[in-house]
Amino acid sequence: MSVLSFTILVWLGGLAAGLLGALTGLGGGVVIVPLLTLFFGVDIRYALGASLISVIATSSGAASAYVREGYSNIRIGMFLEIATTLGAIAGASLTTILPPGIIAVIFGCVLLLSSYLSSRRPRDNPDCVPDRLTAWFRMESTYPTPEGEKPYHVRNVAGGFGLMSVAGLLSGLLGIGSGALKVLAMDLIMCLPFKVSTTTSNFMIGVTAAASAGIYLGNGYVEPALAMPVVLGVLPGSMLGSRILGGASVRVLRLIFTLTILALGIEMIYNGLSGGFK
Protein backbone atom coordinates (compact mmCIF):
# COMPACT_ATOMS: atom_id res chain seq x y z
CA MET A 1 0.00 0.00 0.00
CA SER A 2 1.34 3.43 -0.93
CA VAL A 3 1.39 6.49 1.30
CA LEU A 4 -1.38 8.02 -0.82
CA SER A 5 -3.87 5.17 -0.46
CA PHE A 6 -2.94 4.72 3.23
CA THR A 7 -3.56 8.42 3.86
CA ILE A 8 -6.94 8.34 2.09
CA LEU A 9 -8.05 5.25 4.05
CA VAL A 10 -6.94 6.79 7.36
CA TRP A 11 -8.74 10.00 6.42
CA LEU A 12 -11.97 8.04 5.80
CA GLY A 13 -11.42 6.21 9.09
CA GLY A 14 -10.98 9.54 10.88
CA LEU A 15 -14.20 10.81 9.34
CA ALA A 16 -16.07 7.74 10.61
CA ALA A 17 -14.41 7.98 14.03
CA GLY A 18 -15.37 11.65 14.37
CA LEU A 19 -18.96 10.84 13.41
CA LEU A 20 -19.11 7.91 15.81
CA GLY A 21 -17.48 9.88 18.61
CA ALA A 22 -19.91 12.77 18.29
CA LEU A 23 -23.00 10.53 18.09
CA THR A 24 -22.08 8.44 21.13
CA GLY A 25 -20.80 11.48 23.00
CA LEU A 26 -17.50 9.70 23.63
CA GLY A 27 -15.29 11.80 21.34
CA GLY A 28 -13.22 10.67 18.36
CA GLY A 29 -10.21 9.55 20.40
CA VAL A 30 -11.77 6.38 21.75
CA VAL A 31 -12.34 5.15 18.20
CA ILE A 32 -9.14 6.43 16.54
CA VAL A 33 -6.70 4.41 18.65
CA PRO A 34 -8.38 0.99 18.12
CA LEU A 35 -8.90 1.83 14.44
CA LEU A 36 -5.25 2.72 13.81
CA THR A 37 -3.79 -0.11 15.88
CA LEU A 38 -6.20 -2.98 15.16
CA PHE A 39 -7.05 -2.24 11.52
CA PHE A 40 -4.05 -0.33 10.17
CA GLY A 41 -1.37 -2.00 12.29
CA VAL A 42 0.03 1.33 13.43
CA ASP A 43 2.28 1.33 16.50
CA ILE A 44 0.18 2.30 19.52
CA ARG A 45 2.43 5.28 20.37
CA TYR A 46 1.84 6.90 16.97
CA ALA A 47 -1.86 6.11 17.37
CA LEU A 48 -1.93 7.85 20.78
CA GLY A 49 -0.18 10.89 19.30
CA ALA A 50 -2.56 11.23 16.32
CA SER A 51 -5.57 10.66 18.56
CA LEU A 52 -4.51 13.28 21.12
CA ILE A 53 -4.09 15.88 18.38
CA SER A 54 -7.56 15.11 16.98
CA VAL A 55 -9.00 15.40 20.50
CA ILE A 56 -7.67 18.97 20.77
CA ALA A 57 -9.21 19.81 17.39
CA THR A 58 -12.69 18.46 18.14
CA SER A 59 -12.79 19.94 21.64
CA SER A 60 -11.87 23.41 20.41
CA GLY A 61 -14.21 23.13 17.44
CA ALA A 62 -17.19 22.07 19.54
CA ALA A 63 -16.45 24.36 22.48
CA SER A 64 -16.38 27.38 20.18
CA ALA A 65 -20.09 26.79 19.59
CA TYR A 66 -21.01 25.90 23.17
CA VAL A 67 -19.33 28.75 25.09
CA ARG A 68 -21.32 31.33 23.22
CA GLU A 69 -24.60 29.65 24.10
CA GLY A 70 -23.87 30.30 27.77
CA TYR A 71 -24.04 26.71 29.03
CA SER A 72 -20.45 26.11 30.06
CA ASN A 73 -19.20 27.35 33.41
CA ILE A 74 -15.77 28.86 32.77
CA ARG A 75 -14.88 29.25 36.46
CA ILE A 76 -15.56 25.63 37.32
CA GLY A 77 -13.82 24.52 34.12
CA MET A 78 -10.71 26.56 34.81
CA PHE A 79 -10.49 25.44 38.43
CA LEU A 80 -10.88 21.75 37.57
CA GLU A 81 -8.33 22.07 34.78
CA ILE A 82 -5.68 22.30 37.51
CA ALA A 83 -6.58 18.68 38.33
CA THR A 84 -6.91 17.46 34.74
CA THR A 85 -3.67 19.03 33.45
CA LEU A 86 -1.60 17.71 36.36
CA GLY A 87 -3.19 14.29 35.86
CA ALA A 88 -2.50 14.48 32.13
CA ILE A 89 1.21 15.12 32.67
CA ALA A 90 1.39 12.10 34.97
CA GLY A 91 -0.50 9.97 32.45
CA ALA A 92 1.56 11.08 29.45
CA SER A 93 4.76 10.37 31.40
CA LEU A 94 3.45 6.88 32.21
CA THR A 95 3.17 6.07 28.47
CA THR A 96 6.95 6.30 28.23
CA ILE A 97 7.37 3.66 30.97
CA LEU A 98 4.48 1.19 30.52
CA PRO A 99 4.72 -1.59 27.90
CA PRO A 100 2.34 -1.07 24.90
CA GLY A 101 0.40 -4.26 25.76
CA ILE A 102 -0.56 -2.87 29.19
CA ILE A 103 -1.63 0.46 27.65
CA ALA A 104 -3.83 -1.48 25.20
CA VAL A 105 -5.48 -3.45 28.02
CA ILE A 106 -6.16 -0.28 30.04
CA PHE A 107 -7.50 1.30 26.86
CA GLY A 108 -9.91 -1.59 26.33
CA CYS A 109 -11.15 -1.40 29.93
CA VAL A 110 -11.74 2.35 29.62
CA LEU A 111 -13.67 1.76 26.37
CA LEU A 112 -15.98 -0.69 28.16
CA LEU A 113 -16.42 1.69 31.10
CA SER A 114 -17.06 4.70 28.85
CA SER A 115 -19.69 2.97 26.75
CA TYR A 116 -21.45 2.04 29.98
CA LEU A 117 -21.20 5.61 31.30
CA SER A 118 -22.46 7.13 28.05
CA SER A 119 -25.60 4.99 28.21
CA ARG A 120 -26.61 6.73 31.45
CA ARG A 121 -29.77 8.76 31.26
CA PRO A 122 -29.17 12.51 31.42
CA ARG A 123 -30.75 13.78 34.59
CA ASP A 124 -30.65 17.00 36.54
CA ASN A 125 -30.53 17.00 40.31
CA PRO A 126 -32.95 19.70 41.37
CA ASP A 127 -32.20 19.85 45.08
CA CYS A 128 -28.49 20.27 45.65
CA VAL A 129 -27.18 21.80 48.82
CA PRO A 130 -24.04 23.87 48.20
CA ASP A 131 -21.19 23.40 50.65
CA ARG A 132 -18.99 26.15 52.13
CA LEU A 133 -16.14 25.55 49.69
CA THR A 134 -18.24 26.11 46.57
CA ALA A 135 -19.66 29.32 48.02
CA TRP A 136 -16.11 30.54 48.64
CA PHE A 137 -15.13 29.68 45.06
CA ARG A 138 -18.25 31.50 43.71
CA MET A 139 -19.02 28.65 41.32
CA GLU A 140 -22.81 29.08 41.37
CA SER A 141 -24.16 30.32 38.08
CA THR A 142 -27.17 30.20 35.79
CA TYR A 143 -27.88 28.41 32.53
CA PRO A 144 -30.40 28.97 29.74
CA THR A 145 -33.59 26.86 29.81
CA PRO A 146 -36.82 27.20 27.81
CA GLU A 147 -38.22 29.03 30.89
CA GLY A 148 -35.33 31.51 30.97
CA GLU A 149 -32.06 31.65 32.94
CA LYS A 150 -32.10 29.12 35.76
CA PRO A 151 -29.70 29.28 38.72
CA TYR A 152 -27.91 26.15 39.95
CA HIS A 153 -25.82 25.17 42.95
CA VAL A 154 -22.57 23.25 43.13
CA ARG A 155 -21.39 20.82 45.80
CA ASN A 156 -18.41 18.63 46.66
CA VAL A 157 -15.60 20.44 44.81
CA ALA A 158 -12.99 18.22 46.48
CA GLY A 159 -14.61 15.02 45.19
CA GLY A 160 -14.96 16.48 41.71
CA PHE A 161 -11.33 17.59 41.77
CA GLY A 162 -10.22 14.07 42.72
CA LEU A 163 -12.15 12.36 39.92
CA MET A 164 -10.93 15.02 37.48
CA SER A 165 -7.31 14.09 38.27
CA VAL A 166 -8.13 10.51 37.28
CA ALA A 167 -9.84 11.75 34.08
CA GLY A 168 -6.70 13.78 33.27
CA LEU A 169 -4.46 10.79 33.97
CA LEU A 170 -6.42 8.57 31.58
CA SER A 171 -6.48 11.34 28.97
CA GLY A 172 -2.67 11.59 29.02
CA LEU A 173 -2.16 7.84 29.22
CA LEU A 174 -4.54 6.92 26.38
CA GLY A 175 -4.55 9.98 24.12
CA ILE A 176 -8.30 10.46 24.63
CA GLY A 177 -10.49 13.29 25.94
CA SER A 178 -11.93 11.34 28.92
CA GLY A 179 -15.20 13.20 28.35
CA ALA A 180 -17.44 10.55 29.91
CA LEU A 181 -15.48 10.62 33.18
CA LYS A 182 -15.36 14.42 33.25
CA VAL A 183 -19.14 14.58 32.87
CA LEU A 184 -19.51 12.02 35.65
CA ALA A 185 -17.38 14.15 38.00
CA MET A 186 -19.48 17.21 37.30
CA ASP A 187 -23.04 15.99 37.16
CA LEU A 188 -22.95 13.10 39.63
CA ILE A 189 -20.42 14.35 42.16
CA MET A 190 -20.65 18.13 41.86
CA CYS A 191 -24.37 18.13 41.06
CA LEU A 192 -24.17 20.40 37.97
CA PRO A 193 -27.03 20.32 35.44
CA PHE A 194 -26.35 17.74 32.71
CA LYS A 195 -26.12 20.28 29.88
CA VAL A 196 -23.65 22.41 31.89
CA SER A 197 -21.56 19.30 32.66
CA THR A 198 -21.29 18.12 29.05
CA THR A 199 -20.43 21.54 27.61
CA THR A 200 -17.97 22.42 30.37
CA SER A 201 -16.37 18.99 29.92
CA ASN A 202 -15.95 19.58 26.20
CA PHE A 203 -14.44 22.97 26.95
CA MET A 204 -11.89 21.38 29.33
CA ILE A 205 -10.85 18.52 27.05
CA GLY A 206 -8.69 20.69 24.77
CA VAL A 207 -6.70 22.21 27.62
CA THR A 208 -6.25 18.79 29.24
CA ALA A 209 -4.98 17.30 25.98
CA ALA A 210 -2.67 20.27 25.37
CA ALA A 211 -0.96 19.41 28.69
CA SER A 212 -0.07 15.95 27.36
CA ALA A 213 0.86 17.26 23.92
CA GLY A 214 4.25 18.63 24.99
CA ILE A 215 5.31 15.26 26.41
CA TYR A 216 3.95 13.41 23.36
CA LEU A 217 5.84 15.74 21.00
CA GLY A 218 9.05 15.42 22.99
CA ASN A 219 8.90 11.64 22.80
CA GLY A 220 8.15 11.49 19.08
CA TYR A 221 4.56 10.20 19.36
CA VAL A 222 3.18 12.84 17.00
CA GLU A 223 4.01 11.62 13.48
CA PRO A 224 2.92 14.52 11.22
CA ALA A 225 2.12 12.40 8.17
CA LEU A 226 -0.20 10.20 10.26
CA ALA A 227 -1.74 12.98 12.39
CA MET A 228 -2.57 14.95 9.23
CA PRO A 229 -5.30 12.67 7.75
CA VAL A 230 -6.59 11.82 11.24
CA VAL A 231 -7.16 15.47 12.21
CA LEU A 232 -8.56 16.43 8.81
CA GLY A 233 -10.99 13.49 9.01
CA VAL A 234 -12.08 13.65 12.65
CA LEU A 235 -12.81 17.39 12.58
CA PRO A 236 -15.48 17.40 9.81
CA GLY A 237 -16.73 13.98 11.00
CA SER A 238 -17.48 15.24 14.51
CA MET A 239 -19.05 18.45 13.20
CA LEU A 240 -21.35 16.39 10.99
CA GLY A 241 -22.10 14.09 13.93
CA SER A 242 -23.14 16.88 16.27
CA ARG A 243 -25.37 18.29 13.53
CA ILE A 244 -27.13 14.93 13.08
CA LEU A 245 -27.41 14.67 16.87
CA GLY A 246 -29.28 17.98 17.00
CA GLY A 247 -31.80 16.80 14.42
CA ALA A 248 -33.43 13.39 14.18
CA SER A 249 -33.81 10.73 16.84
CA VAL A 250 -30.66 8.64 16.89
CA ARG A 251 -31.47 5.89 19.37
CA VAL A 252 -30.85 3.00 16.98
CA LEU A 253 -27.64 4.57 15.65
CA ARG A 254 -26.39 5.11 19.19
CA LEU A 255 -27.11 1.52 20.09
CA ILE A 256 -25.19 0.23 17.07
CA PHE A 257 -22.24 2.47 17.86
CA THR A 258 -22.22 1.58 21.53
CA LEU A 259 -22.05 -2.10 20.58
CA THR A 260 -19.22 -1.31 18.13
CA ILE A 261 -17.29 0.39 20.90
CA LEU A 262 -17.88 -2.56 23.24
CA ALA A 263 -16.47 -4.88 20.58
CA LEU A 264 -13.43 -2.64 20.04
CA GLY A 265 -12.81 -2.60 23.80
CA ILE A 266 -12.83 -6.39 24.03
CA GLU A 267 -10.56 -6.63 20.96
CA MET A 268 -8.07 -4.19 22.51
CA ILE A 269 -7.96 -6.17 25.77
CA TYR A 270 -7.60 -9.48 23.93
CA ASN A 271 -4.81 -8.17 21.69
CA GLY A 272 -3.03 -6.52 24.58
CA LEU A 273 -3.06 -9.70 26.65
CA SER A 274 -2.12 -12.01 23.77
CA GLY A 275 0.94 -9.93 22.88
CA GLY A 276 -0.45 -8.24 19.77
CA PHE A 277 1.15 -4.96 20.84
CA LYS A 278 4.89 -4.66 20.97
Binding site: F79, I82, A88, A92, S212, A213, I215, L217, G218, N219
Partner: peptide, 17 residues
Amino acid sequence: ATLIVLAVLLYSLLGHG
Protein backbone atom coordinates in the same frame (compact mmCIF):
# COMPACT_ATOMS: atom_id res chain seq x y z
CA ALA B 1 -6.09 29.16 39.43
CA THR B 2 -5.64 30.08 35.77
CA LEU B 3 -1.94 30.88 36.21
CA ILE B 4 -1.41 27.43 37.74
CA VAL B 5 -3.03 25.82 34.67
CA LEU B 6 -0.89 27.97 32.39
CA ALA B 7 2.28 27.01 34.29
CA VAL B 8 1.46 23.29 33.96
CA LEU B 9 0.87 23.69 30.21
CA LEU B 10 4.12 25.58 29.65
CA TYR B 11 6.02 23.08 31.79
CA SER B 12 4.81 20.24 29.57
CA LEU B 13 5.55 22.01 26.30
CA LEU B 14 8.86 23.64 27.19
CA GLY B 15 10.13 21.10 29.71
CA HIS B 16 9.64 18.09 27.43
CA GLY B 17 8.97 19.32 23.94
